[in-house]
Computed example of a mutant assay.
Amino acid sequence: MLKGQQTRAAILDAALALAANMGLEGLSIGALAEVTQMSKSGVFAHFGSREELQISVIREYHSKFEEEVFFPAMREARGLPRLRALFQRWVHRVSMELDSGCIYISGAVEFDDRPGPVRDALAVMVLAWQSALEKSVRIAVDEGHLQQDIDPLQLVFELHGLILALHHDARFLRNPGALERVRTAFERLVGHYATPVGQQILHGAKSAPPRATRAKARG
């Protein structure tokens, strides 16, 4: 069982590399067998179909995305420090994929008008990430870092737009200033929604005490 799991993990690593460079549609049992120097039947035994292979790659990509972006950011303080960490790690992840490609973005282009299990799996993962961002925005509101009347979904939409612009300018146009521009855009965007306490955090001041503590101090 352990050897089978190791073999499957090795196949998935190779499949991720192929998908990053050729897209999910570029994945096939035959291409993967050639890269891993396995037989087609050996690769097929682990996945059963090209569709299941594509779905497994999407799930593996999401798992690695969580390990590199989501979980480390969760160690930051609640509110804007955590939201900023999520975005900065997201930017770093995209910047490391410029020579290959983000499966979330390339997959959306490939499957935006192609209903089916692969599109559904990809959409579930992207929506899970957006939900995590939305929750972080709501926590920042609760902590008093963002304005009470903010629309969290609107901010998530705008943050996603910044990432798409970064991917376009850095990957397609090869603009060397894209990374600095997206960081500046984040500070400006979030600053628009920030409270005075949030502005202090954005400008490097020490984090304010939790909202409950501040309310007690005022009371």
Rank of each mutant, 00 (worst) to 15 (best):
C102K: 04
L153G: 08
S95I: 04
E110M: 08
E97F: 01
R93W: 14
K135L: 08
V91Y: 01
A123K: 09
A140M: 02
A132P: 08
C102E: 03
A132Q: 15
W90E: 06
C102P: 04
W129E: 00
A121W: 04
M125V: 03
E134L: 08
F157M: 06
D149N: 10
S100I: 00
R138P: 05
L127G: 10
Q130D: 01
M125I: 00
G144L: 00
S131A: 09
P115R: 14
E97T: 14
H145L: 03
D120N: 01
L133V: 12
L153E: 10
E143A: 01
I139Y: 11
D113V: 06
E134F: 03
R119M: 07
H145T: 09
L98E: 01
D99V: 13
D149R: 07
V109M: 10
D99A: 14
D99C: 05
A121G: 02
F157V: 08
Y104L: 07
K135E: 08
I105Y: 07
L146R: 01
G101A: 06
L127K: 13
Q147N: 13
V126C: 07
M125N: 01
Q130P: 01
P115V: 15
W129A: 01
L155V: 12
A123G: 08
V126L: 13
D113N: 05
D142V: 06
V109F: 06
S100D: 01
W90A: 04
E110I: 15
L155K: 07
H145P: 01
S136P: 03
L155N: 09
L127C: 06
P117G: 07
A123I: 13
M96S: 15
V126N: 12
R119C: 06
H145F: 04
L155H: 14
Y104A: 05
Q147M: 10
L155R: 11
W129G: 00
Q147V: 10
G107L: 05
D113S: 09
Y104F: 10
I139T: 13
V91W: 03
E134W: 06
V124Y: 10
L98V: 10
F111G: 02
E110H: 15
D112Y: 15
M125C: 03
S100R: 03
A108W: 15
A121M: 04
R119V: 11
I105T: 01
D142G: 07
R119E: 03
V124I: 09
M96E: 15
H145E: 01
M96L: 14
A132G: 09
I105K: 05
L153Y: 10
V156R: 03
F157P: 00
F157K: 09
K135C: 08
V94D: 14
R138N: 10
